[in-house]
Simulated assay, not measured.
Amino acid sequence: MATEAFEEIVEDFEFLEDWEDRYRYVIDRGKAMDPLDDALKVPATKVDGCASQVWLHPRIENDTFSFEGESDAMIVRGLIAVLKALYNGLPVQEVPKVDAQGELARLGLNDHLSSQRSNGLRAMVERIRSVAAEAA
């Protein structure tokens, strides 16, 4: 149930054989994101459970879910970009149904992230799911 944007990432990962290239790809996706407005970097948008500073600002318009995000760590900023590809544009009621762990496993990220980064990624997914579930 992945979005077209996420499927593009999966295809790109299949093309990139080396994990250093894949890390660079994720980091480049994060660099390409617009920065989060400083006014949105508040305790209510901060994600607990991440080793680095992470803020997620969800939006729901016409029952469609999207979010913006930011991190002070380049790889985490890239992971936010990957999650945006996975979730942005979905109907809000579909967001909690996404098997994020299964979809992200297609990229092999769990095998190549530190335990702290994996925990942070889970915390971001849980925040996204809970916001969407409350709105749905």
Rank of each mutant, 00 (worst) to 15 (best):
L86I: 10
R129G: 10
M33L: 15
V131Q: 09
E61P: 01
L36N: 05
Q116M: 14
L83A: 10
K31I: 00
E7Q: 07
A123N: 03
G89A: 06
I27V: 15
Y25I: 03
L121I: 11
L121Q: 07
D38Y: 10
P91F: 09
R59Y: 00
I75D: 13
G78S: 05
R59F: 00
A100Y: 07
K31A: 06
E8F: 05
R122Q: 06
G102H: 12
V95Y: 12
D48T: 10
E70S: 07
P58T: 03
L121V: 10
Q53D: 08
D28M: 10
K46D: 03
M124E: 08
P58L: 07
S115C: 04
F15H: 15
K84L: 09
P35G: 05
G69Q: 07
R127C: 04
R129S: 12
I128S: 02
E17Q: 11
D111P: 05
V95Q: 09
M74S: 15
R127E: 00
A2R: 00
A5T: 11
I80S: 13
P96G: 04
A100R: 04
N119F: 13
W55H: 06
Q101R: 15
D63S: 12
S66I: 05
L83W: 13
I128Y: 10
R127H: 10
D12F: 00
Y23H: 08
D99V: 07
R29W: 03
R106H: 10
P96W: 05
L121Y: 04
A132N: 09
A51Q: 07
G69F: 02
G108K: 06
T64Q: 11
A85H: 11
K31V: 01
T3G: 01
L109C: 04
R77I: 09
N119L: 13
V82W: 12
L107E: 02
A73P: 12
L36F: 09
D37Q: 04
M1L: 05
R59P: 07
D63E: 12
E126R: 12
D12N: 02
V131M: 08
Q116Y: 14
M33A: 09
A39P: 14
D28S: 09
A51N: 02
K84D: 00
L86W: 01
W19A: 14
E17F: 14
L113K: 04
A73H: 09
G102P: 11
F67D: 03
A81K: 08
R59I: 04
P58D: 06
L83T: 06
S52R: 01
I9Q: 11
L104W: 01
K97A: 15
P35E: 15
V82Y: 13
V98L: 09
A123M: 04
V42L: 06
R77N: 13
G30A: 07
V76E: 00
K31H: 12
A51F: 00
A81M: 10
E68D: 15
V95N: 11
L56F: 01
N88V: 02
P91D: 06
E4Q: 11
Y23I: 06
S52C: 02
D18C: 10
L86P: 08
A123S: 09
L83R: 14
L79M: 12
A32E: 12
P43G: 04
L40V: 00
V76Y: 02
E8D: 03
D99H: 13
Q93I: 15
H112F: 14
L113Y: 10
